[in-house]
Amino acid sequence: MARFRGRGMASVNYPIGMNLGGDPSQALIHSNPDGKFTVALSAIDLGQGMKQVTRQVAAETLGVPIEDVYVDTADSDTGPHDMGSFASRGTHRMGNAVIAAAREARGVLLEAAAEELEVNAADLVTDGKGNIHVKGAPSRSITVRATAQAAQFKQGKTIAGRGIFLIPLSSVDPETGEMNPNTAFAHACLVADVEVDDETGEVTVLGMNSAYELGRVINPKMVEQQLVGGAWMGISHALYETPEPYYPNPDHGPRDFNEYLMPGPGDIAPYSIAILERPAPDGPFGGKGPGEMCANPVLPAIANAVYNAVGVRVNDLPITPEKILRGIRANGGAKPQARRGGAL
């Protein structure tokens, strides 16, 4: 009985968003009398960082400090319409909607400031620190806060903006079958090294290396966080997690967290990532977003690594010890496959 090492790789071209009847996101932004801005979205931050990313995008476009922007995703009943947080669409779709809303709000903000300063709005710029001044004449300035108060209490203006970003429905051409469901693709390649025990059927992930091309990385630490965490979800989907281990037979399914296998802090292996940035022409500041692609290439890479290690091709997930042992038995023993690129 022995442990066999194997290496597998997978590449992915990943579409951002989806196209089932069109893919719109809306954003609404308004200023409060204290000069701070509220961004209303109906897409929910599930922990992937959408609130932070849309906050950065809004602050950058409005030209105000990031501390002065609050993103509210509290209520999809009262908020503007959104398709939702899925299909890795958050950064791209909501980011673009927020840019559109912030541009309109910025236009009203500068008009209100122009009225106070008695200048032309086209001559005004923001310094990103909460001030608006005449281009080339920083002393002729007014704070965003004073502008918001003047708009609210003197001018009777609403500093607000509406934004929508829509990828319209792309129908299939009946003659050619062609369609254009997506405007932005992200890309990745991932290599997984594993060790398979031919006695227990257990797979240990020794390490992973990957390269991700995500467009402009709007928040580098959050991208890293998402890629690392998502990769572990991929490992978990590949090796551990399933609600129905004998699908379509529902028996022996996990009933709670004690029986549903999830990776813990002791299960992590070294993982290095190279992040490449090729800004998307239609992305918010060029961003596409990592999204589900963090996990996607991990599954085929591990399946390939298991095949490389012991010659067992498991076609349904998760790749459990039972499936590996049955495969090894069917093959009459572990059959390590050839590997290009030298030893692990």
Partner: peptide, 11 residues
């Protein structure tokens, strides 16, 4: 070890 992070952000 007794704490699960579902975002798998252990590192």
């Amino acid at each position: 070890a007794g704490n699960i992070c579902r975002c798998t952000g252990y590192e």
